[in-house]
């Protein structure tokens, strides 16, 4: 049985796909057979972030409609062993995903994989609900900014009431907070919510803090998951987050402003 992890946020543009790509890659690098599913029907983008956009032949909806088999549709990652991608459909039909269809595909994948990462679309509509419905764990991606924190709280409400586990009265979905685009400098100046501010408000365990980093845009430009950029702070922060997801204890890094020289500090540079 695979563990199903949804990467969700409510708000768009906070880094769900970047995080799905990084975390899925990180889990596979640990030797677990992993598939990342793009649930954003109509706005496929995981393929670009993973750099496999030219290898898409069939998609998630084709599999649901039995127009293609899973093995025809899954794209094997070229860099990371044990990693596969299931691309979203570009159809504009909103009802292309059905709960029965999704369940059938997840059950089939469950037999072959150890981890299934569901990259949720933004919003709290059907697509997002479908992505989280079967989840065992949720990674809630949040930016330290008012609208993102509020939307994350709404998504937590949906995880706790509209998921399969909630409806069947089973053990609730494991919740993990992933804070992205964090600027320690701005936090120090009182211009940005701190890690502990967001933890206080959302009250769920912290999985990781990804600092704002030029490496994220650079990696997406090249179609490389940022976790493979081992020289970058963002890449290392994702590696730590994956280790914690696997149950390891890891100290949090990159939360403090890097020490500057006395003269530079005096001039406020």
């Amino acid at each position: 049985m695979a563990k199903i992890i949804v990467v969700t946020s409510g708000k768009g543009g906070v880094g769900k796909t970047t995080s799905s790509a990084a975390i899925g890659t990180g889990i596979a690098m640990k030797g677990h057979k992993t598939v990342i599913i793009d649930f954003d029907v109509g706005l496929r983008n995981l393929d670009l972030i993973m750099g496999c956009e030219r290898r898409v032949v069939y998609d998630f909806v084709n599999v649901i409609n039995k127009e293609a088999t899973l093995s025809q549709t899954l794209i094997k990652d070229k860099r990371t062993k044990d990693l596969f991608i299931l691309p979203a459909s570009q159809t504009r039909d909103k009802d292309a995903l059905t709960i029965e269809g999704v369940q059938e595909v997840l059950e089939a994948l469950s037999k072959e994989f150890d981890y299934i990462i569901c990259d949720s679309p933004a919003g709290i509509e059907k697509g997002a609900q479908m992505a989280l419905y079967f989840a065992d764990a949720a990674i809630v991606v949040t930016n330290p900014e008012v609208s993102s924190v509020r939307d994350s709280d709404r998504i937590l409400g949906i995880l706790q009431s509209k998921s399969k586990r909630a409806e069947e009265g089973k053990e609730p979905i494991e919740e993990h907070l992933l804070l992205t685009r964090y600027h320690p400098e701005r936090v120090a100046l009182g211009e940005m919510l701190s890690v502990s501010d967001v933890e206080d408000i959302l009250a769920i365990p912290l999985l990781g803090v990804i600092p704002e980093s030029e490496a994220v845009l650079k990696a997406s430009n090249q179609g490389t998951p940022v976790i493979l950029e081992t020289e970058s702070e963002a890449g290392l922060a994702y590696t730590d987050a994956v280790d914690r997801l696997m149950g390891e204890e890891k100290p949090f890094r990159f939360l403090e402003v890097q020490k500057k020289g006395f003269i530079k500090r005096l001039l406020g540079g």
């Binding site: 008012v146 709280d153 100046l189 009182g190 211009e191 919510l193 206080d200 408000i201 406020g268 540079g269």
Partner: peptide, 28 residues
């Protein structure tokens, strides 16, 4: 914070603490 910032607007709460207060109320 540089030496020039030190003299201005000490009493005002930071925008981050305003954000936290507003969020705590609306989320609750």
């Amino acid at each position: 914070m540089g030496i020039f910032d030190y003299f201005k607007s000490k009493a005002e709460p930071s925008s981050a603490s305003v954000a936290k207060d507003r969020l705590q109320i609306i989320v609750a």
